[in-house]
Write a protein that binds this DNA or RNA. Structure first.
Lengths: 191, 191
DNA sequence: CGTCTATTTGAATGTACTCAAAAGCGGTGG
DNA sequence: CCACCGCTTTTGAGTACATTCAAATAGACG
């Protein structure tokens, strides 16, 4: 079974590619193995790649002026991750992307994606539709952040992503939800 | 001067359209005038349109179980707005979109946009690139929400969008930043 | 000018945070 | 395989910050 199976199925949910288009697409995918705690993106370096996770888990986070970590993305199988701002604008990253587990990812270079999207209409459609969908979910997170209490945010997350909640360290989850690890521990204990 | 000037300039920042493509695009834009306090989107109704603001200001917000309003988007000239989740999935909206001022907007129907993006590669490119950029900014807001104090969020907003901060009521801004109106008033007074 | 809404101010409350320390857990090397 | 070490999670106490509720003031609009 090909390592491209997952991503091609993902694409197939939105558009249908010809065999030739599939070949062109997979040609720009660079399979990479990363070990737990390894950084894929680091502040100061341009995030050249959009990364798709075949197997494993990754988080994107930044360290504020006080040295505290804030997790922006927690990604598992069949998700994309990168420092999006750095990737889209091709400017130096501000965030880290770190493997939470040994992982296998598919990396696609910005220039390659852009070139291919310029040539292949259906791939352009795929990325448009996929990103629009991501965007619509992103608003849900904003709604959670501005309107819900820490406790509500936590249980909402557990409800929505039970696999993730049980798979990542609590301090990572806390930093994703914007809660201190101590508070998250207390929220969990009073249930 | 055509009312399409703004949106066409926006498109031109990303892609170049032929005259024919421009004609096809503007053909699906429906200019609509809305009065202050008028709703463009309401819970229970599918948000059929993606809306571009030619002139005016609009906010998207929801009302929680306790009757409190939470503002998700504040949009002015040259911005798009809609209940994105409802629009993308074509399911009933959960949010309101309300004019903060008398406004002139361009409405494009979901089906028309999809059909045109299927036919016209460069328009598909435009929406892809535009949405990817929006996405990259959306992460910035998330970073703000999970990592910064109320006070920092407020000053960051004023710094980033001074025109908006001085143009919308403070309780709207407070509900956008996830702060109570009273707290925002106090933040402003101690400066 | 009067009414309605938005903003400010005050006092009390509550939620989440910080700092500190203990307990739990996992991984590593002897 | 067990013992140790480091990191994560829990627990406790005190504090800071934002919220709520209530009332007063200020502003906008007809």
């Amino acid at each position: 079974m090909s390592i491209y199976k997952g991503i091609l199925e993902n694409v197939a949910k939105y558009v249908q590619l010809t065999d030739d288009e599939i070949a062109q697409f997979t040609a720009i995918l660079k399979p990479t193995r990363i070990k737990k705690r390894q950084f894929v993106v680091q502040p100061g370096f341009v995030s050249e790649y959009r990364n798709y996770i075949v197997e494993g888990a990754v988080r994107v986070f930044y360290v504020d002026a006080l040295g505290k970590e804030h997790t922006i993305i927690i990604a598992i199988e069949d998700w994309f991750f990168t420092d999006f701002f750095s990737y889209i604008h091709q400017t130096p990253a501000e965030y880290y992307a770190e493997a939470l587990e040994d992982s296998l990812i598919l990396q696609m270079k910005y220039d390659d994606v852009e070139e291919l999207c310029g040539k292949v209409h259906s791939l352009c459609q795929y990325f448009r539709l996929y990103t629009e969908r991501s965007m619509s979910f992103s608003y849900k997170r904003t709604v959670s952040n501005i309107g819900k209490s820490s406790e509500e945010r936590y249980w909402e997350f557990v409800d929505k992503y039970p696999q993730i909640a049980s798979r990542v360290p609590q301090y990572v989850l806390a930093s994703y939800l914007g809660i201190s690890p101590e508070s998250l521990s207390r929220i969990r204990s009073r249930s």
